[in-house]
């Protein structure tokens, strides 16, 4: 049973594969983003989530499961999670899951977490604050609601003692210290220590057949098609466009004083200052 002194804390970390923002390139002629050939990497905030979980593994011997939803190639972020020290990786992959908005994603992740709980205890779910390709910061709270667990967002430091967690939340100009009973969902935006690097030996181990990596599909988590992927999504993208296309450079000429006056007038016009 969870909570008994001899049973380890069981933590699930949600990780997402995203396009590498450091490798984005601009088309020099059109100023638009070139997405082809951009390598896929682990979402930076999720790396903080893993570090938080692995610090609990260091101090309390927590068991850490990394969970991701994505195409088969997303197994790479789970391999990397194993290389950092996670004990198990589970990839949710199914054609039905594609095109999900945050509602459908949190439903799918929630079902997977329920399956994890049918296999053993689960005390804590940790997510990164937000994904660098979406910036919505919605999955953490939505998964918490799916599970019916309390949530603590914007965490920069986390301690677990018995059946409670203590978290330091970083808000603008403010740090809040809160106490929350387990089980709970936490989203992190920083860690006391920089996220650890993957270990080379564990990395190669994670690529071998014996690695503790599984793939679950819609049937495995009993997720109906109507509630996952694009079909289960409550929002629809109807249009995408490049904001750069609209950027028209306006030259402000004259003496320094004239230039500065003209600029301030423009900025005031746009209510920027």
């Amino acid at each position: 049973m969870p909570g008994q002194p001899d049973s380890p804390l069981c933590v699930a970390v949600l990780v997402k594969q995203v396009p590498d923002s450091a490798e984005i390139k601009m088309d020099p002629r059109t100023g638009t983003l070139i997405r082809e050939g951009v390598p896929a990497v682990m979402n930076p905030d999720d790396r903080l989530g893993l570090e938080t979980a692995l610090a609990l593994k260091d101090s309390l011997g927590a068991l850490v499961t990394a969970l991701s939803m994505g195409p088969i190639q997303a197994v790479d972020v789970l391999s990397e999670a194993l290389a950092m020290g996670a004990d198990r990786g589970v990839l949710l992959s199914d054609r039905n899951f594609a095109g999900a908005d945050t509602w459908a994603t949190s439903f799918t992740l929630g079902r997977a977490l329920e399956r994890l709980m049918s296999q053993g205890p689960l005390d804590l779910v940790i997510c990164g604050r937000q994904a660098s390709d979406g910036d919505t910061a919605q999955i953490g709270p939505q998964v918490a609601e799916h599970l019916g667990w309390p949530q603590v967002t914007y965490v920069e430091r986390l301690e677990v003692e018995g059946r409670e967690l203590r978290a330091w939340r970083r808000l603008p100009g403010l740090v809040q210290k809160v106490l929350c009973p387990l089980p709970a969902v936490v989203t992190v935006l920083a860690t006391p220590q920089a996220p650890r690097w993957p270990l080379v030996d564990r990395l190669l181990w994670a690529c071998r057949e014996a690695a503790p990596l599984e793939v679950w599909d819609a049937a495995d988590i009993e997720a109906p098609a109507a509630r996952t992927g694009l079909k289960g999504s409550l929002t629809r993208v109807v249009k995408t466009f490049s904001p750069k296309g609209q950027r028209v450079t306006q030259w402000l000429e004259g003496t320094a004083a004239e230039q500065s006056q003209a600029l301030l007038a423009e900025l005031r016009g746009h209510k920027l200052i």
């Binding site: 979406g134 993208v237 109807v238 995408t240 466009f241 904001p243």
Partner: peptide, 11 residues
């Protein structure tokens, strides 16, 4: 979206 490189209209 995509770090401000794309704008998306959603319904």
């Amino acid at each position: 979206a995509f770090g401000g490189n794309v704008m998306a209209t959603i319904v």
